[in-house]
């Protein structure tokens, strides 16, 4: 399996043949460029995953009825449903 095939599978994408051909050319170039970061010296440096400061803004863990999505309501933007169920792609 090529790198592009593996990434396509992991990404749950279905690429057309012309898209696959384009990415086979472009993705290695981009990866090579961004991989320059590996030369940055980071020994002993703690990671920063976000830059938020101050206290964390929390709310109580309760259901807001007016914010719930309703299967039969106009806000449940699904295209494939059957009676009170929605249909998903086969997983296994």
């Amino acid at each position: 399996m090529t790198l592009i095939d593996l990434l396509e599978q992991l990404s749950k994408l279905r690429l057309k043949s012309d898209e696959k051909a384009l990415l086979k050319k472009q993705l290695p170039e981009i990866i090579e460029y961004v991989s320059r970061i590996k030369s940055l010296k980071t020994e002993g440096v703690k990671p920063t995953f976000h830059t938020s400061t101050g206290s964390v803004s929390l709310r109580s863990d309760t259901i807001k009825r007016d914010r719930r999505l309703r299967l039969n309501g106009k806000y449940f933007n699904i295209s494939t449903k059957q009676k009170d169920y929605f249909i998903v792609d086969k997983v296994l």
Binding site: V34, I37, T42, V45, T48
Partner: peptide, 13 residues
């Protein structure tokens, strides 16, 4: 690589 960048981010900050 993502974790490496998170360390680089500390240096930038």
């Amino acid at each position: 690589t993502y974790a490496k960048v998170a360390m680089g981010r500390t240096l930038l900050v």
